[in-house]
């Protein structure tokens, strides 16, 4: 694999042991992968698949049972690597008695930044994550979304080369999620490498260049998102105002071409889309509460 990889994982295994030292769980099993500079890499998998364990091993919070990790060319346990890493934990584990400014100032100090630098960077980041109005409030008064934002801000305090995001969109409302995704894309544009893990396929799909899918600690899929999605031999036709007769006709057409109709439904839109649309509409036309079903009715036909 390439020499200049930001993260190299070789044969990584993590076994959790019980009190007597007997193996209990094999959380990660012989995982090997590379993350290249400048890409957005997604670690996917259901809960308990080993994503978070892997990230924590990358950061030196957990020690591998076997295998090697090199991150920015240094071993995972070397604290010097942290100079260029930004980490957003699964939930923002911050000091709840500090306010936003103090939080960023504190983490800034940990990077040995000068007072002027810290001030400037704090200002920038608070504005960037939209917490300007709440900058003097203690974090314990923050909502979950706000905590997430300040968490992100602290992860970027050192203008890192590599950003590790653990479930970046968890706990965020759809707008927050969208903003987070935009931000990830922006980070990529700035040339940073981003590694994120998530079990929300949609999030990953939208922003990642490459993904790895873990299941039970094992790597199941690895590759470019487009490629992974494109490999599926399916065609989706979405139409509106289609009569039953028309549907039958289309079915006939498909049958004629040796296709098989798998599913004919009247589906709802995805919740995220609906929510976004509703919010967007409410903002555009205040006072309107209800949109009639009939106007919106749509038929979706998925064919093979």
């Amino acid at each position: 694999m390439s020499e200049n990889a930001v993260i190299e994982i070789r044969n990584l295994t993590k076994i959790y042991r019980d009190f007597w030292g007997r193996p209990k769980v094999r959380a990660v099993n012989s995982l090997s992968l590379d993350v290249k500079p400048g890409e957005v890499f997604g670690l996917l998998g259901p809960n308990g698949s080993g994503k978070t364990t892997t990230i924590k091993m990358l950061l030196g919070l957990l020690f591998p049972s076997e295998g090697d990790i090199r991150i920015l060319g240094k071993p995972a346990t070397d604290v010097a690597k942290n100079e260029h890493i930004g980490y957003l934990p699964e939930e923002s584990y911050l000091y709840r008695f500090l306010n936003a400014e103090e939080t960023l100032d504190f983490y800034g100090r940990l990077f040995d930044m000068t007072s002027a630098e810290r001030k400037q960077r704090t200002d920038e980041l608070i504005k960037m994550v939209g917490l300007d109005k709440a900058r003097r409030r203690q974090l314990k008064e923050y909502s979950k979304g706000m905590t997430r934002r300040i968490g992100l801000a602290q992860a970027l305090i050192n203008n890192p080369k590599l950003v590790l995001l653990d479930e970046p969109t968890s706990g965020l409302d759809p707008i927050g999620t969208r903003e987070m995704k935009d931000l990830i894309i922006k980070l990529k544009e700035e040339g940073k490498t981003v590694v994120m893990c998530s079990h929300l396929l949609a999030d990953v799909q939208d922003v990642c260049d490459r993904i790895a899918i873990l299941y039970n600690g094992e790597l199941k899929q690895l590759g470019m998102v487009d490629e992974l999605l494109a490999s599926q031999d399916k065609t989706q036709i979405v139409s509106s105002s289609l009569s039953d007769e028309a549907v039958d006709e289309i079915k006939a057409v498909i049958a004629k071409h040796n296709g098989t109709v798998q599913e004919v439904t009247n589906p709802t839109t995805s919740l995220e889309e609906l929510f976004l649309q509703t919010v967007a509409e409410s903002q555009a036309r205040p006072g309107q509460r209800f949109v009639a079903e009939s106007e919106k009715a749509a038929n979706t036909t998925t064919v093979d």
Partner: peptide, 15 residues
């Protein structure tokens, strides 16, 4: 326990 230490040790802070 609160894992606030995680955020600290992932900065270049020596133990």
């Amino acid at each position: 326990r609160l894992r606030s230490l995680h955020t600290v040790v992932t900065k270049p802070v020596k133990r």
